[in-house]
Simulated scan of single mutants.
Amino acid sequence: MPPRSAPRPSRALGLAKEDFDFDQEIVQVRRQVKMVRTKLCFALPKGRKVREVPLPPSVAKAVWRHLDLFAPVPVTLLWDDPTPPQTAVEAKHRRPRTYNLMVTGRERKAINRNYFNSYVWKPALAEAGVIAPLEESAPDGARVWEPSREHGFHALRHFYASEQLEAGESVVSLARWLGHSDPGFTLRKYAHFLPRAGARGSTAIDAVFS
């Protein structure tokens, strides 16, 4: 998993059709597409925290639309470490696994998170006017965007957490969905995303004395 300062689309890029249970209205976070020494492999999510997250009907509808437009692609990668195994135990643990990925590249392969960030996420932000467009490449041919850590892919996670808390969802449930072992950490991390939270307390007291 990338360091904290890096973008984190790895889990989204590892989503497969079989992770969605439309009847139970849940999506299972069970893997990520991880890069190890320039090679991709499947691995457990960060902290090895497999979990189930609610799948709202509106999101399920969007997923179905995506499936209608883009058929899932079976992708096979080694598990956890793409380097050649040295022992029978390593060979068993790293054996190839195949999943029907929801998002793949033009060559119908798993996507490198760095490629996604530079060629998909940042261009989308520029198109939406969130960051400045990329006018030209660096001398070495690299695509260099303006620093925009606050607009990284991880911002979607912040948005989800803040909306859940603002709606009054239990911080214990939210911590479980985010993969946090300590609900207190979840509250400390996302409390500042609640600009209207104090208004609910005032409204509650007014209701008691009115």
Rank of each mutant, 00 (worst) to 15 (best):
P85A: 01
P85E: 02
V63Y: 10
V75D: 03
A88M: 11
L78Y: 02
A110Q: 07
P74H: 03
W79D: 05
I111L: 07
V89A: 14
S162N: 15
H66K: 03
Y99T: 01
R65W: 04
E107K: 13
Y119G: 00
L67V: 07
A167I: 04
T76G: 05
P84V: 09
A167M: 11
K61V: 08
P56G: 06
P45Y: 06
K122C: 12
N112T: 02
W145C: 04
A132H: 07
P74R: 04
R157Q: 11
P57K: 14
M102P: 01
S162D: 14
A71W: 00
K122R: 15
R113D: 13
E52K: 12
E107D: 14
A161N: 11
A71P: 07
P82I: 09
V59Y: 08
E127R: 13
R157E: 11
P74E: 05
L44Y: 10
K109G: 10
R149E: 15
G152D: 12
L67S: 06
L55C: 08
L125K: 05
R108I: 01
H93W: 10
P123Y: 06
R106H: 12
A138K: 04
P57M: 04
P147K: 08
I131Y: 06
F42L: 09
R157D: 11
W79F: 15
V120P: 00
L125E: 03
W145L: 08
L77K: 09
C41K: 01
R48Y: 09
K122H: 12
P85H: 06
A91F: 00
R106P: 11
N117F: 04
L69R: 13
A110M: 04
I131P: 03
L69V: 03
V103E: 00
A167R: 15
V53E: 08
M102W: 03
T98N: 07
R51F: 04
V53M: 10
S148K: 02
Q86V: 05
Q86N: 09
A126K: 08
Y115T: 14
A161D: 09
A167K: 15
N114P: 00
N100M: 00
R106N: 13
A43V: 03
F159V: 09
A110Y: 07
R51A: 02
V75Q: 04
P147N: 05
L55S: 06
G47M: 02
M102D: 03
K49T: 10
I131N: 03
P84I: 03
N114A: 13
F159E: 15
E107R: 14
A128I: 08
